[in-house]
Computed example of a mutant assay.
Amino acid sequence: MNNPFKEIISDEKLPEYIRQKVIDDINLIKLSIDMADLFMVKSPGVLGTLFDDKNKNPDK
């Protein structure tokens, strides 16, 4: 069985728009992980205040 990775041409450069798309996707994933970490791990009470119904408790 041939190794398909040996058939990749190493001298060929990736087009800039594909490279930028990959970098943008990685940045979006990193941002999503950071936001999930912020709201779910570090400050779970913040998420509750976002969805708190003000009409539920008029005393507040």
Rank of each mutant, 00 (worst) to 15 (best):
N57D: 08
F5H: 08
G48R: 07
S10V: 04
N55E: 07
N2L: 15
E12M: 11
P58S: 00
D11T: 09
N27I: 06
G45T: 08
V46Q: 08
L28C: 12
M35K: 08
D59W: 11
R19D: 02
D37F: 13
P15Y: 04
K42C: 02
M1C: 12
K13H: 07
M40C: 01
I33K: 07
V41R: 13
K54C: 06
I33S: 14
F39Q: 04
D34E: 11
K56T: 08
I8M: 09
D59K: 11
V46C: 04
N3H: 01
P44H: 03
D53C: 08
D11M: 02
D25V: 09
D25G: 12
P44D: 01
R19K: 05
V41W: 05
I23Y: 07
N27C: 14
L47M: 03
K21F: 11
D24R: 10
V41P: 10
F39G: 00
V41N: 14
V41H: 10
K30P: 04
N57Q: 03
K21W: 06
L50S: 00
N2D: 14
G48F: 14
G48V: 15
L14H: 11
L31P: 14
N2H: 09
I8R: 01
P15I: 00
E12R: 15
Q20Y: 00
P58A: 03
L50Q: 07
P15D: 06
P58L: 00
L38Y: 14
L31V: 05
Y17P: 06
L31W: 11
K42L: 01
P44F: 02
M35S: 13
E16N: 12
N3I: 02
M35T: 06
L28F: 10
P58V: 00
F51Y: 05
P44S: 01
S32Y: 05
D59H: 10
N2F: 15
F5C: 11
V46P: 05
M1P: 12
L31E: 08
M40A: 02
I33L: 12
I18C: 00
L50D: 06
V41M: 13
D25W: 06
F51V: 12
I29N: 08
K54D: 09
S32W: 02
L14Q: 13
D25S: 12
P58E: 01
E7W: 02
G48E: 13
M35P: 01
Q20R: 02
I26R: 11
K13F: 11
K60R: 15
T49Y: 13
L38G: 13
D11Q: 07
D34Q: 00
K60L: 15
I9S: 15
I18E: 07
V41I: 13
I26Y: 03
K60S: 15
P44E: 04
K13V: 12
K60M: 14
D11H: 06
F5M: 12
I8D: 02
